[in-house]
Nucleic acid binder design. Sequence first.
DNA 1: TTTTAAATGCAACGCAGTTGCATTTACATC
DNA 2: GATGTAAATGCAACTGCGTTGCATTTAAAA
Lengths: 141, 141
Amino acid sequence: MSDQLAAEILKEHSLKQTAGRLAILLVLIKAGKPLSHKDICSVLGDHFYDPVSVYRSLDSFVEAGFVHRVEDDNRTRLFALCTCEKSSHCHPHFFCRRCGKCECLKKFDIPAISELQQDYIVEEQRYYLKGVCSCCSKSGS
Amino acid sequence: MSDQLAAEILKEHSLKQTAGRLAILLVLIKAGKPLSHKDICSVLGDHFYDPVSVYRSLDSFVEAGFVHRVEDDNRTRLFALCTCEKSSHCHPHFFCRRCGKCECLKKFDIPAISELQQDYIVEEQRYYLKGVCSCCSKSGS
DNA sequence: TTTTAAATGCAACGCAGTTGCATTTACATC
DNA sequence: GATGTAAATGCAACTGCGTTGCATTTAAAA
């Protein structure tokens, strides 16, 4: 299932199939949301895979384009499997300050800023929201 | 001129007038754009004001609400005097990858996301653009 | 099976920002 | 103007995320 998907993704992007990469990718697939390096390491368990190698594997995923990096505001980076087409990486991310989770909000259209401001070349857009997610807001204050 | 403005801003927000705070505020006023801690320290010159104190002064400015923090993607934070009303801190920031400058794009309306997604409490929005600014794009590739 | 470029582990490093604590200072009160 | 006090500062050490260098191992092509 997910194992096979992970292997396929690596193959598709001409990345070597290593135990570490497969494990990391599996974690990202199962999570279905952005995770920090720390999150990933704690799911993998210590001593299984070197933290530095986790960084390097993630970097290779980002470079290949099937994982994207989300900056949160604590100077940490989150990594998420990117299910959208490569050309539309851009969608808002919502950070819940109560449960700490990060969600990709893919329903929203981000306005085409480039049309509004002359001579600006927009190469990357990032939309970041913070507050309380629907799950937490329902379960009382 | 600017000196007086700096003093007024501090007074308005009930912050003690200290040489360091006035100097930092002056730097921000004159810059007219977001600056990093490093930028500020290098304008102030070494040995005039302790780097840690610069951080603390900036924090007090942010807490008072007349300076806001902009996250760029190099894990550094930029600080900018906030000329807009407190209630509308939110506007896009454009980072030019060529000249490295950061601009506040105050003309743009950010869509009201909160209406679209039920039960989400949006407390903060951040819009981040990256590319080449009009100035750099005009002066050749 | 052999070869080789890429991936890994380990140790040390870099940098932005924070914390603790003793000292100094702005400013309110007398 | 002198005094008292909470806030601001300087200094040193620390934290946490991420990176770099280098020797070793390994996936996968030949």
